[in-house]
Amino acid sequence: MSAFISLLKRDLLLAVRSRAEVLQPLFFLLVVVSLFPLGLGPGPALLARIAAGVIWIAALLASTLSLDGLFRADFDDGSLEQFLTSGHSLSLLVLAKIIAHWLTTGLPIVLFSPLLAVWLNLPREALPVLVKSLLLGTPVFSLIGAIGAALTVGLRQGGQLLALLIFPLLIPVLILATGAVSAATDNIGSSAYLLWMAAYAVLMLTLAPFACAASLRISLS
């Protein structure tokens, strides 16, 4: 457990040290979202209708951008070999890294989502659901994305491949989350969607660290 906490602390410290890397996905998110009104026209009704989908797709792209680097630094400098040989459970160490990743990329997206919602004229009653859906969905991005990142860590064209690997797997999150927001917009209950998202997040929290550890073992061999 002390290894788990020490690794989590170390990753957060490293994130603080290299702020630019942490902030880039967030700026990317803001830029991508701002492109949609520019490309589709500023009509409030249209923006309100597409708001949830745009925010979610932008969040997906921003997460993927940051996921590419999740294990790369540790792979390049040999830290991953140290994790593997340390005798600690690799799944647990991987989970620490995933949590650190979510805290530095997923959580800022959640915190910035009200701003994006205002930009895109999302109805006010749908905002809490959007925030809740992001809270439940972005951890799944980090969890499933980590598997892809672990499989592509040592590869040259890792970034593009990572997107190809994880986008299809993230479709359920996208569907459930935008479904929840549009249900809230239409004033029908959105809790069914959110509960499904929570169930999916728990499932992935259980399985992904193991898959991720197995992937890292393959990538290191």
Partner: peptide, 20 residues
């Protein structure tokens, strides 16, 4: 017994000090 491995890649972080 655990193993302690030291390979060509050193497993230290450039942005942390020696002490850290």
């Amino acid at each position: 017994l655990p193993v302690a491995w030291l390979g060509h890649k050193l497993g230290i972080k450039d942005s942390l000090s020696v002490r850290e």
